[in-house]
Simulated assay, not measured.
Amino acid sequence: MSVRRWVRVLRGLTYLLAALVSGVATVLALPLLCLPGLARRWANAHRDRAARLIGTPLAPRPASRAAGRRAWADPATLRDLLWLPVHAITGVAFGMFTLLCVGNLVPATVATPLWWAFAPADRPRLFVDVPVPDWRTALTLGPLQIVLLLTVAYLVLPPLARAHARICLRVLSYSAAEQLADRVAVLTRTRADVLDAHGAELRRIERDLHDGTQARLVAIAMRLAVARGALSDNPRNEQFLGELLRDAHEGTEEAMAELREVIRTVYPPILTDRGLTGALTAVTARCGVPTRLDVGNLEAVPAAVEAVVYFTVAEALTNVTRHSRATMAGVRVSRAADRLSVVITDNGAGGADDRRGTGLAGIRRRVLALDGTTDVDSPAGGPTTITVKLPCGS
């Protein structure tokens, strides 16, 4: 009997006892749990717990897109509602068997050795209500009951817990058709967001070039034309020509600086010069809050993913500096297979919300453009954790 096996027994015991409690709670609160929103959260909690027991990584279930009366016709809601009676039956049945084993271990391991301390009418009984009239019975049947129940727990509880977990995942898992339909809906919504973001970005670049760089270049051209005319009219007018050429030179440098800023918003040159690690090092060094950077072995990362990671970290750290009142921040970038993970944390006041214009909506749009996910955990009082996961090829 290995230690690892007993750990699985204890995990199965804990899982089944929790299933018993939640099964009873399901029966008692059934009318309330039939509400679509509560049914979804209740089902997701059991699904996640079942996946942890089996060790099966699961993609998060999408939130129901239907509202009002239509929510009752949503296949996801129907699946959640189906789980309520299934769990009430299986959770109570499996849990009662577990409770029977555990409950009968107590008199065998604790009360039976102290048989002599009880009054005759109060002396403990063994499994299935077997009386213990004398010492021989107490010292013989007690250890046998312990061995029997421990053997049952060792052999039965882990597969019983896994069976309940598989039932849970079977009921709450999407069919292939439902997964495909949900995937199409997500991609359709993502495509619309990408097109909107792309159009807004093009308008911003056009406005920056039209109002800034183009205006300066027109002014430079006018000064050079005046200088050329002045030189033709009076070749000795050196002071006037010098002033015009100086203004044109300064305007050229300013126009080049503005043009570099516009280019930087399209694809940061620092990524080309220093790579993703060097670019993130520069961003964290410029942050107004002390920031710890941890970059793992990323291997080759597509340029589009590098740009999204760079802008995500830059925007998130800007939010930390402006809004969080944090004293410390951290950025961790790692890669597992074909997924790149970026985690930005701070110890600030929390309460980050997309609707408050803190840049989180822009981060979500950038990430969704590459079919990634963004998760924001920012309770009031902090801390704040932003987790971004992006596909980056195999």
Rank of each mutant, 00 (worst) to 15 (best):
G362P: 10
M256P: 01
V301Y: 03
A25G: 05
V308N: 00
G330N: 10
M222H: 12
A59N: 12
R70Y: 07
D122Y: 01
D354S: 12
T90Y: 07
R79P: 06
H198R: 06
I205M: 07
V301M: 08
C168W: 06
V106R: 10
V92D: 11
P269H: 06
R332Y: 04
P60N: 05
R204C: 14
A248N: 03
E299P: 13
T56Q: 04
T272I: 04
L276N: 03
W83R: 03
L144S: 05
V184H: 14
S175V: 09
G68A: 10
F127E: 08
P113T: 02
P31T: 05
L241H: 10
G199W: 11
V367D: 05
D129S: 14
P85H: 05
V283L: 03
D182A: 10
T252N: 14
V3P: 02
C101H: 03
V226A: 14
L160G: 12
V305I: 01
R189E: 10
L180C: 10
A121M: 05
L141V: 15
R292C: 07
R69Q: 12
L84I: 07
T272S: 15
L169D: 13
L20S: 09
A303W: 02
L160D: 08
G23R: 00
A257L: 04
L99R: 03
T318K: 07
T151F: 02
I89E: 01
E243Q: 11
R125A: 05
G351M: 00
T26Q: 06
L20M: 10
G95K: 00
E258L: 12
G12R: 00
G229P: 12
F311W: 13
G359F: 04
W116D: 10
G382K: 04
D208Q: 11
Q239C: 10
R125L: 06
V184I: 14
S324K: 08
R365M: 11
F97N: 13
L114F: 05
S22F: 05
N104W: 06
